[in-house]
Design a protein around this nucleic acid. Structure first.
Length: 513
RNA sequence: CGGGACGUGGCGCAGUCUGGUAGCGCACUACACUGGGGGUGUAGGGGCCGUAGGUUCGAAUCCUAUCGUCCCGACCA
């Protein structure tokens, strides 16, 4: 349908990276801040984050966690305690060294040498160490376990290369931290939270994911096991959308998190940590966006229904507005997904037709336009953002009756939510190859001019150490990475694609963000 | 952090090579027309050309530094 005049100037198929940036600015989600790698999240983008936050927070609380808040500054000595952890994060830290500025006599302010901190503070890149410190104080006995905490916070990682929402120097997230009496319980909890993330991604964000364990080389610094949910973006690349780590006793040893067991003996706790960030929003864009902008799943849309009166700056406007208010009032009494509908009546002066495209770009799930003729006929003009265009290349308006429209919206929103998920799942499934068993097939698949090579499921022998390094190098030449070892995969039935040894598990291999 | 490109009204760009104090499209404001679709016309408002130094009678334009952005690479829960 090439005669359609799309709402964006760049198409996904022409330049995916540029398209991604255009969606963010056209949907008015975020903008550059002037500070390297940091962004201003605008109301529509932040509204989506608030929705994700709220829905995920409920799920986290349902699994027994309480929220708390720890300082953004971590004493350097505290951070230094876990060697691998330090190794992983040291090169991307923001460090506070002074607590006062002083005029330099040339009209500038400089850090006052007199005000140098005795011990530098690092801006948290994650909070295992400072929370571990607290856990050591909070936990005395087996009766204090399990300790289940979570915090919503910002963190800073001095990234070399940043992209809005996907990798920013400062980002918002949720980090859960738990302590358990033994390994089995801690591991079980790691998987329980991974499942919470899967449900949140698939049910709340309508973003299909594959849950599995990360290979050794992709582990979180200091973790014994790292698990992830991986989503396929529309360009076929993988996005790690959430991680859950079993930390063993590494952080307990570093921070001395111990408890007295029933027999009176001192034991180290087994801890976990898990996080999901504003990166999820990047995932939503690249999962549901189209050539007209964003499409927000109704569960996380700041407004699920936007009403646009076709104002003419004439006396008749008053009746039209009152007609629209009726619709809004009726909608407000409805519920969808167990919550009240979120409805906006845009009364701002301006052409409805022009405003319509603003909301199309923002991806409001349902747009209701109302003009004088609708009013006369007792109907409204309704657009589904997920199915915008009719066969004739024009916006596909529906005309439900005014009195019936409110009641129909909850079902419609559920249908849209489902349609978005199914579209994404079908696309993902169509872009996973499972028939590749040889390295040359793999290079051919990813070398060829395939615009959309997607993911490949292969079998491997789960190498470790140097042997794994070799595999990672081979993959790197093709710009590929091992995404994860999916939970619940079929049993292996062939040789390792990299070494020829008997395979022990299946893995997903893909280009990644 | 290496290589490349770039930074000019809100957005997208021209002007930079060949110095002479800024222009286009969209958006914006006002009025009029139009009126079921992102409309038309007329008239306007808004920029010390990222920032700081330097060269020059004179700098968006030349030189230096610096900050930021994008692409490629290295790195990366």
């Amino acid at each position: 349908m090439s005669n359609i005049r799309h709402a964006l100037s760049v198409k996904r198929s022409d330049d995916f990276a540029k398209w991604y940036q255009e969606v963010i600015s056209a949907a008015d989600m975020a903008e550059e801040s002037g500070v390297r790698g940091c962004m201003v999240i605008k109301p529509w983008g932040y509204g989506i984050w608030e929705r994700i936050q709220r829905l995920l927070d409920e799920r986290i609380k349902e699994t027994g966690h309480d929220n708390c808040y720890f300082p953004i500054f971590i004493p350097l000595s505290n951070f230094e305690r876990e060697a691998e952890h330090v190794d992983g994060f040291a090169k991307e830290m923001a460090v506070v060294t002074h607590h006062r500025l002083i005029a330099d006599g040339k009209g500038k302010l400089v850090p006052d040498p007199q005000a140098k901190l005795e011990e530098p503070l690092v801006v948290r890149p994650t909070s295992e160490t400072i929370i571990g410190d607290a856990m050591a104080r909070w936990i005395q006995s087996w009766r204090d376990l399990p300790l289940l905490t979570n915090q919503w916070a910002n963190v800073v990682r001095w990234e070399m290369r940043t992209r809005m929402f996907l990798r920013t120097s400062e980002f918002l997230w949720q980090e859960g931290h738990t302590a358990h009496a033994d390994q089995a319980e801690a591991k079980e909890h790691t998987l329980r939270m991974l499942e919470v993330y899967r449900a949140c991604a698939e049910e709340d964000l309508a973003m299909p994911v594959i849950a599995g364990e990360k290979p050794e080389n992709e582990r979180f610094p200091g973790a014994v096991e790292t698990w992830s949910i991986e989503a396929m973006m529309q360009d076929g690349k993988a996005l790690q959308a959430g991680t859950s780590h079993y930390l063993g006793t590494n952080f307990s040893e570093a921070a001395n998190i111990r408890f007295q067991d029933k027999d009176g003996a001192q034991q180290l706790c087994h801890t976990t940590s898990w996080g999901v960030s504003t990166r999820m929003i990047g995932g939503v864009i690249m999962t549901h966006g189209d050539d007209d902008g964003l499409r927000v799943p109704p569960t996380i849309a700041p407004y699920q229904v936007v009403i646009l009166p076709m104002l003419r700056d004439k006396p008749e406007d008053e009746a039209l507005l009152s007609y629209c208010e009726d619709i809004k009032t009726a909608l407000k009494t409805e519920t969808a997904f167990g919550e009240k509908l979120r409805v906006m009546l845009d009364k701002k002066p301006g052409k409805a037709a022009a405003k319509r495209w603003d909301y199309v770009r923002k991806g409001a799930p349902v747009i209701i336009e109302v003009g004088g003729r609708d009013m006369d006929n007792g109907v409204v003009s309704l657009l589904r953002r997920d199915a915008l265009w009719a066969e004739n290349g024009k916006p596909d308006f529906h005309s439900p009756g005014k009195d019936a429209v409110a009641q129909s919206i909850p079902d419609l929103l559920a249908e849209i939510q489902n349609a978005l998920f199914e579209q994404a799942r079908a696309r993902r499934d169509a872009n996973i190859r499972t028939d590749i068993t040889e390295m040359n097939q793999l290079s051919e698949h990813f070398d060829s001019k395939h615009v959309h090579p997607g993911w490949v499921e292969v079998q491997w022998c789960k190498p470790t150490g140097d042997e794994l390094e070799k595999v990672v190098e081979q993959l790197k030449e093709l710009k590929l990475t091992v995404r994860n070892v999916p939970i619940g995969a079929a049993p292996v039935d062939s040789a390792c694609i990299f070494t020829g040894k008997p395979a022990v598990e299946r893995i997903y291999v893909a280009k990644a963000y």
